[in-house]
Amino acid sequence: MKFKLLTIGLLISGLAVPALSAEQTTKIRVDGMTCPFCSATSEKALQKIDGVKSVTTDLEAGVITVCASDTAKLDDVTLKELFLKKGFTFVSKEQFDTCKEA
């Protein structure tokens, strides 16, 4: 009986714990952004992607840093089309396993 209760308890606690997705940092190199207007419009578009938690821009370097869940759609094709619509040029991206503090 105790064993059955323990088993049921473990099953319920297992179901109750929400599945946690991993976070990752994506550094996106974008050419053509020259002013705060430019970075704001790009950040706004990235923030609309499901799973994106924060977006910051280094205008001088032309790098946008995105902290997002690893399920966020940040592949090259998506990014190229996103920045094309904004009037800029997607160059490349690098991904890291964790989100760093800004």
Partner: peptide, 12 residues
């Protein structure tokens, strides 16, 4: 209409 566009990091 944008006829020509040449972008670089932080420049256009």
């Amino acid at each position: 209409y944008t006829l020509l566009q040449r972008d670089g990091p932080g420049r256009t």
